[in-house]
């Protein structure tokens, strides 16, 4: 059970794609900052280098821009400490972001991409069946996990006036 070292793979990636920034985070995973157009090639490159296990794909809303995060790692039977790699695409516009889908490469991310679309509104080109997964199909309220999301559904009138009954201390 020898610890798995993925540094050579990252050097090879750096050699292949110089524009990529690779950094090791304090909490033990590797961040790979990628630009939008190189994203799919980098993921394909990593897959060929043996990163076969799709952990999950999600997005982070930094209030002015969206950042897509794809987590992969090498599932090598008998290995220890197989570190996680986060492929990050920053600077996506908050509405109408278009990102190539990785479902053809990793079928396991099919629903994760649909959930990210459902929650953040990032459209994935090439996804076999991109529609909302958790929210009802006829949901018009926008994408809930965005920081500026306001629930526009009509407020039901509150039947009992809450304030008067309880004498709050």
């Amino acid at each position: 059970m020898e610890p798995l070292d993925i540094r050579p793979d990252l050097e090879a990636l750096k050699a292949a794609y110089p524009a990529v920034e690779i950094a090791e985070a304090a909490t033990g995973h590797f961040d790979i900052r990628v630009s939008l157009d190189q994203y799919l090639d980098v993921v394909r490159f990593l897959k060929d280098r043996g990163f076969n296990y799709p952990a999950c794909i999600t997005a982070i809303d930094w209030k002015d821009r969206l950042e897509l995060v794809l987590q992969l790692y090498k599932l090598v039977v008998g290995s220890r400490q197989s570190p996680l790699v986060m492929v990050r695409v920053d600077g996506l516009p908050r509405e109408g972001a278009e990102v190539p889908s990785v479902t053809p490469l990793y079928p396991g991310l099919n629903w994760h991409e649909r959930e990210t679309y459902d929650m953040y509104g990032i459209r994935f080109q090439g996804h076999p069946d991109l529609r909302r997964i958790l929210l009802p199909d006829n949901w018009q309220g926008g994408h809930p996990l965005l920081k500026d999301f306001v629930d526009k559904r009509p407020r039901r009138p509150r039947l009992v006036r809450h304030r008067d009954t309880i004498v709050s201390g």
């Binding site: 952990a55 999600t58 982070i60 079928p107 396991g108 099919n110 629903w111 994760h112």
Partner: peptide, 13 residues
Amino acid sequence: KVKWRSPCFTHLQ
């Protein structure tokens, strides 16, 4: 941000 990667969600695929 909290992202909960759920195994059952993935297994349903």
